[in-house]
Design a protein around this nucleic acid. Structure first.
Length: 823
DNA sequence: ACGTCGCATGGGG
DNA sequence: ACCCCATGCGACG
């Protein structure tokens, strides 16, 4: 366990002592929790040697530190003392079972902390955290474990709800707390107050940093990323830290106090030191109540298991952890075992065969016949089943928890890829934009983007990621913690684990595969406040918070472009002169960047150098970025749905009345007049769409015509040669023709005079490549020629078209198919 | 051929 | 080295 505490471990012994025998420092208590709880959940006081744990089932989340040095269980209200006692079997003493509490702690307003430096002018330490607007339901979804990354950022945490104010421990650790009402009710029905705590921490490098407790838990960010998407985002600027404090090199931090999912150590003595924490029940009080219903019975959580692929598969066998089976299920001596009745949450009783297989002089326990039950709960690999026991009758109960992170992980993955640092594929599309390094609306995306930066094949891996598994992140964190920093940058095949356990046979790529390769310090260094908005300032206890409506900016905002030639570029804006400079695609810029740092183009390495982009080109470029952002935040883009977001970067047009931003109709799909030119054989999405739609239109017309002809035939008007027409929209300023396939059939009647196409030519047209058709009709391009650039070095003729990554293209294809089907 | 049963294998802690 | 356990796989019906 030593490695969990990093440099501060030496103090552990003392702290343990303080923890139970002194009334002093909250942070010390929490610190002990951090390193100690990972073990078994039981702890012993170093002075009296006694194991402390509260046997009260409901109490494991909170304790209260009493003024006289005692500890009080919030739930059972037992006041506990660290006095030598012989009654070890009685749960009269309450340690704290807050094994997960730190990970659950949430700041409701500190999102980014910036430490003010140690007087040496350091300004690089920033800690961003997103807002935490989670509600009770998201809180319920989480499972967590809170362990600080070893040797990276060491934190301690407090979760004492009674403390409010500023304290300074004998070790110079400063903790400032501010209490907020979150509006969320805890399992006891009380409003949850969030204690916003700011602590002084130090990094392994010895540099002090400020950070909230959330920062200790990267996986938390993954798991609850969806709740992070909304602001505000805050930055806390702390006053200068006295060197006397810094010299302590000690870690404090911050924490919140909330109703949480708590890992409960085994309730039965015979197993308490054997059961792996991964099996500890993490059921919440609410869930327990759900299970027990209105009855007065007590529900004792026993254990839980993350379903493996084979557990959830069709074999219908759920492998039980050996220790759990032997501890909580009836003893069996024959492999055939016993039938076992287990009641589910709905009250339905299931009959399973509880048995074992002899295995290497051991046993492997399984529940057989679980398929119907698993299916009725709609569980799949990665979800968690929980086992409890109703007391006093002893009835076995089972519940479940879905792997709630799946969706958000998926989304975040998409988001990450769309904001990819290094687009890994040549552009397939003429018009897509990637807001590279732009506002990150989620950390998960950010983290994965970072990951992507160093591990390009991850993308391929994550493509196979069907269902990220909740528990896996815990392992990821454990792994992260146990790795040296250097190691964390090395390729590591062991990382491709999954489903909370250990087989590489599993098909599902877990979050583990997305494991962070950056420490929080490194990561936070890449964050800076959003440049677009002025923060509002709030002062809490002399501490100033800047609150932003936007997430922090990761690195330097830039725009990725790709030309039809396949050439990729990146455009970034100078912080001094605001000119946009063209950069290599693989450049990662710091948050602050100026022309002077433009080492890639000496002729534009000073602000005086002229803009490479004409105003018009720039407008277009920014339009792309803007559209991309809208796409990233569909809720702000007037109801755009996934379907019509497939070509997100299309600059706005008003070409047709029903156009909405994000509209993927063919009219809107075309770049604005004067921008871009696609070759006849271009297979980009837009052109393919044009072609498909053209073909569809032709077929429809053919169909309509056939119907009409049938009518005509009925009327014996045999000689009528039917003509229908195809409307060609007048091109805009360029005067070149553009295909307007959005013309409503009815409108065709009105345009009768324009062009007439016989049935035969129609059929031909529908079956020949579009470009041939166009050539025959005097059309050279779907998209008109670009305007001449006004810049001294004109943009290549194919205007930056921003690239689509794999995911984007997949979505596009899907979307196009949908369009196709619905049209 | 296919599903089930019982065990075997082997990765990983 | 030992144990756990995810899942592979042969035998069987």
């Amino acid at each position: 366990m030593n490695d969990l505490c990093g440099a501060s471990l030496a103090a552990a012994g003392d702290y343990k002592k303080v923890l139970y025998c002194s009334s002093t420092a909250y942070e010390q208590l929490a610190f002990c929790e951090l390193f100690h709880l990972v073990d078994t959940g039981w702890r012993d006081c170093t002075s009296c040697g006694k194991q402390l744990h509260c046997g009260c089932i409901a109490s494991s989340a909170f304790i209260e530190l009493l003024e006289d040095g005692g500890v009080s269980c919030v739930s059972c209200s037992n006041s506990l003392r660290c006095e030598p006692s012989t009654s070890e079997d009685k749960p009269e003493e309450c340690g704290v079972s807050v094994e997960n509490s730190v990970g659950e702690m949430r700041s409701s307003s500190i999102k980014m902390l910036k430490h003010s430096g140690d007087g040496t002018g350091d300004d690089g330490q920033k800690f961003f955290l997103p807002s935490d607007n989670e509600d009770a339901s998201t809180s319920q979804m989480k499972q967590e474990e809170s362990l600080p990354p070893k040797g990276e950022i060491q934190t301690m945490s407090t979760s004492i709800s009674t403390f409010n104010g500023t304290s300074e421990s004998a070790h110079g650790t400063k903790v400032i707390k501010h209490r907020e009402n979150t509006g969320v009710k805890d399992a006891y029905g009380s409003l949850v107050q969030t204690d916003l705590t700011i602590g002084l921490a130090s990094s392994s490098s010895g540099k002090p940093v400020f950070l909230p407790s959330m920062a200790v838990e990267e996986s938390e960010l993954n798991k609850s990323y969806s709740s992070f998407q909304q602001g505000p985002w805050s930055r806390h600027v702390l006053p200068k830290v006295p060197k006397s404090i810094l010299a302590q090199g000690f870690d404090a931090n911050a924490s919140m106090n909330s109703q949480i999912r708590v890992a409960r150590p085994p309730v039965e003595g015979r197993i308490k030191n054997q059961l792996l924490p991964r099996y500890w029940p993490r059921i919440t009080e609410q869930e327990l109540q759900q299970i027990s219903g209105d009855s007065n019975a007590t529900v004792v959580p026993l254990f839980e298991k993350v379903l493996s692929a084979s557990d959830a598969g069709r074999i219908g066998r759920l492998v039980l952890p050996k220790a759990c089976a032997e501890a909580y299920f009836p003893p069996i001596s024959q492999p055939e075992g016993l039938p076992l009745r287990i009641q589910d949450v709905k009250g339905k009783e299931w009959l399973f065969q509880f048995r074992f297989w002899p295995n290497n002089n051991s046993r492997m326990y399984v529940l057989e016949g679980v398929t119907p039950c698993i299916q009725s709960m709609q569980l799949k690999a990665g979800d968690t089943v929980t086992f409890s026991r109703m007391e006093p009758e002893g009835k076995l109960l089972m519940g479940f928890r879905k792997a709630s992170i799946s969706a958000s992980m998926q989304d975040s993955r998409i988001a990450a890829i769309h904001s990819g640092v290094f687009p890994s594929e040549p552009s397939l599309s003429g018009v897509n934009t990637i807001g590279n390094l732009s506002h990150m609306s989620d950390y998960s995306g950010l983290l994965q983007t970072l990951k992507r930066n160093t591990d390009s094949h991850l993308n391929a891996l994550s493509t196979n990621m069907n269902s990220p598994i909740g528990d896996a992140s815990r392992h990821a964190t454990e792994k992260l913690r146990s790795k040296s920093r250097v190691d964390s940058f090395q390729p590591d095949k062991k990382r491709s684990r999954n489903i909370g356990s250990k087989s590489k046979r599993l098909l599902i790529e877990s979050q583990d595969a997305l494991e962070l390769k950056y420490t929080w310090e490194e990561l936070q260094d890449m964050l800076s406040p959003p440049t677009t908005l002025k923060p509002s300032t709030v002062t809490i206890e002399d501490h100033e918070f800047e609150e932003y409506g936007e997430p922090p900016v990761f690195g330097k905002g830039s725009i990725f472009t790709a030309r039809l030639s396949g050439e990729q570029e990146q455009w970034a804006q100078c912080d001094n002169c605001s000119k946009w400079r063209r950069l290599p695609v693989d450049v990662l810029l710091p948050a602050k960047w100026t022309c002077q740092e433009n080492v890639w183009d000496q002729s534009r390495s000073v602000c005086l150098a002229p803009d490479e982009l004409s105003p018009r080109e720039l407008e277009y470029l920014l339009g792309l970025a803007k559209e991309f952002q809208k796409w990233r935040r569909p809720d702000q883009s007037h109801g755009a749905t996934r379907d019509n977001l497939n070509e997100p970067s299309i600059a706005a047009t008003t070409k047709h009345p029903r156009h909405r931003p994000g509209c993927s109709c063919i009219v809107c799909s075309q770049p604005p007049s004067g921008k871009g030119k696609h070759k006849p054989n271009c297979t980009c999405n837009v052109c393919m769409t044009v072609k498909r739609r053209f073909k569809t239109l032709m077929l429809r017309k053919q169909q309509r015509q056939a119907e009409r002809e049938a009518e005509i035939a009925e009327k014996n008007q045999l000689k009528l040669e039917t003509e229908i027409e195809i409307g060609f929209a007048e091109s805009r300023s360029s005067g070149k023709g553009q295909l307007d396939l959005n013309i409503h059939p009815r409108r065709l009647q009105d345009n009768h005079a324009k062009s007439h196409v016989s049935m035969m030519s129609l059929l031909q047209a529908a079956n020949q490549p579009l470009e041939i058709y166009m050539k025959q009709n005097g059309l050279t391009s779907l998209i008109s020629e670009p305007q001449a650039s006004s810049g001294s070095q004109p943009l290549p003729q194919d205007i930056p078209t921003v690239q689509a990554d794999r995911q984007g293209n997949e979505e596009e294809r899907q979307g196009l198919d949908e369009n196709q089907n619905s049209s």
